[in-house]
C-alpha cells in the first residue's frame, strides 16, 4: 500500500466519522436542544459534544488540506 493511498484512507475515514457525528447531531437535534435548554447538569451535553466534534473534525481538516497538497511554504537553501 503506497503512502498516498494510506493517507487517503485515513483522511476519508476521518471525514466519514466526522460526517456521521454531524448526521447524528442533525438527527437528534430536538432532543439535544431540549436537554441544553434545561440547563443545570445538562450543561455536560453541549460541552461533551464540543470536545468530541473538535477532536474528530480538527484531525480530519488537517489531513484534508495536506492530502490536497495545500501546505505551508517549504524553505529551501542551496549549499
Amino acid at each position: 500500500m503506497g503512502t498516498k493511498t494510506g493517507a487517503m484512507i485515513q483522511t476519508v475515514s476521518l471525514g466519514l466519522l466526522s460526517a456521521i457525528l454531524y448526521f447524528l447531531l442533525y438527527y437528534f437535534n430536538e432532543t439535544i436542544l431540549d436537554w441544553s435548554k434545561q440547563g443545570g447538569w445538562y450543561f455536560i451535553v453541549p460541552i461533551s459534544i464540543a470536545f468530541i466534534f473538535s477532536l474528530v473534525h480538527g484531525t480530519f481538516t488537517g489531513h484534508f488540506w495536506d492530502l490536497l497538497g495545500v501546505k505551508a511554504k517549504s524553505v529551501k537553501k542551496r549549499g
Binding site: 437535534n29 445538562y42 466534534f53
Partner: peptide, 13 residues
C-alpha cells in the same frame, strides 16, 4: 452559559 441553557450547540458545531 450552559447552566442557564444559553448554548446552542448546533450553531457552535
Amino acid at each position: 452559559y450552559a447552566l442557564d441553557g444559553f448554548v446552542d450547540i448546533r450553531l457552535a458545531m
